[in-house]
């Protein structure tokens, strides 16, 4: 019985890990290219989630269909953020951008509170909730679907990053900004594109997230923390590392929740967070971050 539930929780952890990986990919992209740790990333994910929620409630749109729209909305918010705020303080000490995005995060979280109140929201599609049995393992369709979509989006982003000129420019900036500038890459333009791409990934992840979990305005910081820890685990700019990091976090959380009392469920996440930071500050799975 324990074994079965443990096995199920591992599979569940892997599936959830896919969405985690997608969330952290946006953060890693911006972090790598611009050396900006976007502390409002979790709030951007939430925003994507709420957009999908609204489309579901108002237009009865399936969250999987509203995904591109959520990505678009959050992407434009990202565009505004980069153009009017983040790019203004490029020259300032790194901690300033950190404080700036912290402020933006607080702003977005409270804007969400204004619009959608503090209630817990979730998209409940009956199709998603049905469980599929694979021998002793039981998972819901929603989990499998979101995992596959996350995986697909990660692969898609990976292809853009490795095969297109733009992707190569982005990776060049991640490696060495000055050298990339000397090679004629317009780094300001690439910065904007990277920021928007990162935000779009956050928005897309949000619309998947809202069909798995309840969302509420204060959840953003928690999402940022998870994404941050995955990037710390996997290093900036490694796709396989990101997926592995996401899955590791998902599985660790899910097993710990099965074994330890549910009232300490939230605690486990934070303890994992602290332990990861204390033991391995950078790049466990991939090359080290900055």
């Amino acid at each position: 019985m324990l074994w079965e539930s443990l096995l199920s929780s591992i599979v569940y952890g892997i599936l959830v890990g896919g969405v985690y990986a997608l969330i952290s990919m946006g953060l890693a992209l911006i972090w790598g290219v611009m050396d900006v740790i976007n502390l409002s990333h979790g709030e951007l994910v939430l925003l994507g989630g709420y957009v999908a929620y609204w489309l579901f409630v108002l237009e009865d749109l399936n969250p999987l269909l509203s995904l591109p729209l959520a990505a678009l909305v959050v992407g434009s918010i990202g565009l505004i953020m980069e153009k009017f705020f983040v790019s203004k303080i490029k020259e300032a000490p790194a901690l300033n951008t950190f404080l700036l995005t912290y402020g933006i995060g607080i702003f977005i979280a409270n804007a969400i509170l204004q619009i959608w109140t503090a209630d817990y929201r979730r998209v409940n599609v009956s199709f998603f909730l049905e469980t599929v049995s694979l021998g002793p393992i039981r998972v819901s369709r929603g989990d499998v679907l979101t995992f596959s979509l996350s995986f697909g989006l990660i692969m898609f982003t990976h292809i853009i990053l490795t095969k297109t000129y733009l992707g190569k420019a982005i990776r060049a900036l991640t490696e060495d900004r000055i050298a990339a500038q000397l090679m004629g890459i317009n780094d300001k333009q690439v910065d904007i594109i990277a920021f928007v791409m990162g935000s779009m990934l956050a928005g897309a992840a949000g619309s998947l997230f809202v069909s798995l979990y309840y969302v509420y305005p204060a959840l953003g910081g928690w999402i940022t923390a998870k994404a941050f820890i995955i990037v710390v685990l996997s290093g900036v700019g490694s796709m396989s590392g990101t997926i592995l990091g996401g899955v590791m976090l998902g599985v660790a959380e899910s097993i710990a929740t099965t074994l330890i009392s549910a009232s300490y469920r939230e605690l486990i996440g934070f303890v994992i967070f602290i332990i990861t930071l204390l033991i391995k500050p950078s790049g466990l799975l991939g090359r080290s971050s900055h």
Binding site: L100, G103, I104, I106, N110
Partner: peptide, 22 residues
Amino acid sequence: LLTRGHELLLGALLVIIVIYMP
């Protein structure tokens, strides 16, 4: 001004301070 979520303005203020008068 805002009965719930007045931190919104604090967040906005933080953004302004960081950009215009660090």
